[in-house]
């Protein structure tokens, strides 16, 4: 384990090896928002430096995974760069404030969100309350997940975490809006999934899998869900999500 250095606000960044081809930087001793800012700022810095041999950077909530080819670089070099950047961050604001807000229409329940009843039951509230909580506040994207560009968001203000499905679905339709634990997500691609489904957006979440950048949204951006009736599906079908920010 690397000697962690205490930053002036009391938190610190701890860097540990994660096998022969990766290290993990973890923000500890600071509030969740700050920890998230720190690991994403470190990821941005590492991206900008384009360190030889580094080929994978995964910032999430309070942790940053850096994968590299240990023939082209080594743990000491990656650690040194991370330490240097962590020190530079200091205590100031570390994210650019220019975030975007996307407004996403969702058909809740029924065939669109088959798990809405069970989630309501688990939370001890009505289906309507689940929907109201889900679209009652802007949800912040914290990171992008599998299989491609899935926006992982802070979940709605549910009274408790939502359990995962006992047996995952083998096929979740693209645009499905799901929750689990204290997180929320839109599934951009058809894929297997173990998160309960509340609804589905008719928007096209990803325009082009070969696009660079892959997604219109970035960590820090927010999503606001708006309930629509099943009859309104066709009014939005196929519209790019990228066009709904404002």
């Amino acid at each position: 384990m690397d000697g962690s250095e205490v930053t002036p606000d009391g938190g610190s960044v701890v860097i540990v090896d994660c096998g022969d081809s990766a290290v993990v930087a973890k923000a500890v001793g600071m509030d969740a928002e700050r920890a998230w800012q720190v690991v994403h700022a470190l990821a941005d810095a590492l991206d900008a430096i384009r360190l030889d041999g580094v080929h994978g950077i995964v910032p999430t909530y309070d942790s940053l995974l850096v994968e590299f080819d240990c023939t082209d670089t080594d743990h000491a070099t990656v650690r040194r760069v991370l330490r240097h950047e962590a020190d530079r961050l200091g205590t100031g604001p570390v994210r650019p404030s220019s975030t975007r807000r996307f407004v996403v229409p969702v058909v809740y329940g029924g065939e669109f969100g088959p798990d809405l009843p069970v989630v309501a039951e688990q939370l001890g509230v009505s289906e309507r309350e689940v929907v109201e909580l889900h679209c009652g506040a802007d949800l912040t994207v914290r990171c992008l997940g599998a299989p491609a560009g899935a926006p992982m968001m802070d979940g709605p203000a549910f009274p408790r975490p939502v359990p995962r499905l006992a047996s995952p679905r083998t096929h979740v339709l693209p645009g499905s809006v799901a929750v689990a634990g204290r997180q929320a997500v839109i599934c951009p691609m058809p894929s297997p999934g173990g998160w309960p489904l509340l609804g589905r957006t008719p928007l096209r979440v990803l325009e082009d899998l070969d696009a660079d950048p892959l997604t219109a949204y970035r960590p820090g951006d927010t999503f606001r869900f708006v309930p629509i009736a099943p009859e309104q599906w066709d009014d939005h079908a196929g519209r790019p999500l990228a066009a709904t920010h404002g």
Partner: peptide
Amino acid sequence: RFGRSRYGLPV
């Protein structure tokens, strides 16, 4: 597929 894990793409 290197360098895309930040977008959730496996290698």
